[in-house]
Design a protein around this nucleic acid. Structure first.
Lengths: 202, 202
DNA sequence: AAAAATACTATATATTTATACAGTATAAAA
DNA sequence: TTTTATACTGTATAAATATATAGTATTTTT
């Protein structure tokens, strides 16, 4: 990312302040007033510079149409919690959003789309316990050994995933549980996302 | 809090959606468009109703001047991360704040004062791994069996705590580690806080 | 039964606001 | 050295927007 100039930082700061304080972005005039500019074009050109550097986006033709890109946390860091229902291998209640929690997106390595509330003990040997919230990044791209949310024909399960040609291995971390073997020629299976973190409440 | 009517809920929802999606509140016209109203005054009066019920506030004379009230704190959501240095039983670098992360205070059962970054494997059998962030609630009050941050004469360690008269037992969750016995008549020990949760990054 | 709140359409307008255009000046990059 | 980016003032204006006023109709509260 390109560096911002001192003035551009001030303008960006002014935008953030406005959003935090009032709940909405500032107008050009307000930026000018706060930073002591006498021409609205002073604000305008700084905004365009910030837009060019991909720091903000400006909605054309609408007032206060400024939004800060790749916004860390803020207040919009709300992530849904979805519960797995059954034990062991489980059924995802697709729209079963239990609640929403606020998390800092910068916390985890990848963007968190939802938290999966773990039911069952299939991953207990790797420190994933019942009722833990596993942070899921939605993707169907994975590497062998990733912790994946996999939708099989009638189940959704959280396991380590390994793929070799047409064979899919879903491996639990509990010696009392058997690995699941899926032959993709006969059965369908889809990776919904991969685990990028975990939250546990005692 | 007074109940909202169905229409008022829709309008509120529309405002929230706009803020989430675009980064700024909607105009009257935009609300009308989304909800199918044909007069800007339809939106206006619903907004005034929501204002009267203290759900939103409307900044007079400014465009998109809508903000949703009592938005959940977000203020005190910044919590420091402190690293434990050595392995097994460790030394707390007291003011060694690695960084700050934003968490939803309602996430854990008790208020989180800081996160302790775990070093070592002494709690591994209970799913607390190296580099996990254990949410610590500062207190010197504890129950037997609590996960506690204990400052001994020259160490700080995270263990299960048990107290019986003058004897303190600090119990790891790893059979390769020995429990620590402290005789409070000879040695001093202080409970800095107790663990109320955990965050892991993969 | 009357008053107040809800739920709108319809029209109008003062004000807010984005945004273009014309300059000036300096610093940095090509 | 010429171009590009930065950093503004100053003026102007079309378009966006809040907001008032005038109605109608239904539901809820008092």
């Amino acid at each position: 990312m390109k560096d911002l100039t001192a003035q551009q930082s001030k303008v960006l700061n002014c935008i953030e302040e406005s959003i935090n304080k009032t709940g909405f972005p500032p107008t050009r005039a307000e930026i000018c007033q706060k930073l002591g500019f006498k021409s609205p074009n002073a604000a305008e050109s700084h905004l365009r510079a910030l837009e060019k550097k991909d720091i903000i986006s400006i909605a054309g033709g609408s007032s206060r149409g400024i939004s800060i890109k790749n916004k860390k946390s803020s207040s919009g860091g709300s992530v849904p919690v979805i519960g797995l229902v059954a034990a062991g291998s489980a059924t995802l209640a697709s729209e079963n959003i239990e609640r929403e929690i606020n998390v800092d997106p910068s916390l985890f390595s990848r963007n968190v789309d939802y938290f999966l509330k773990v039911k069952g003990l299939s991953m207990i040997e790797d420190g994933i316990y019942e009722d833990d919230l596993v942070a899921i990044h939605k993707t169907n791209d994975f590497k062998n050994g990733d912790l994946a949310v996999v939708r099989t024909e009638d189940d959704v399960t959280l396991k380590y995933i390994f793929k070799e040609n047409h064979k899919l291995l879903l491996k639990p971390a509990n010696k009392d549980f058997d690995p699941i073997h899926i032959d993709l020629r006969n059965e369908s299976a889809e990776v919904e996302g991969i685990g990028v973190g975990l939250i546990r409440k005692n």
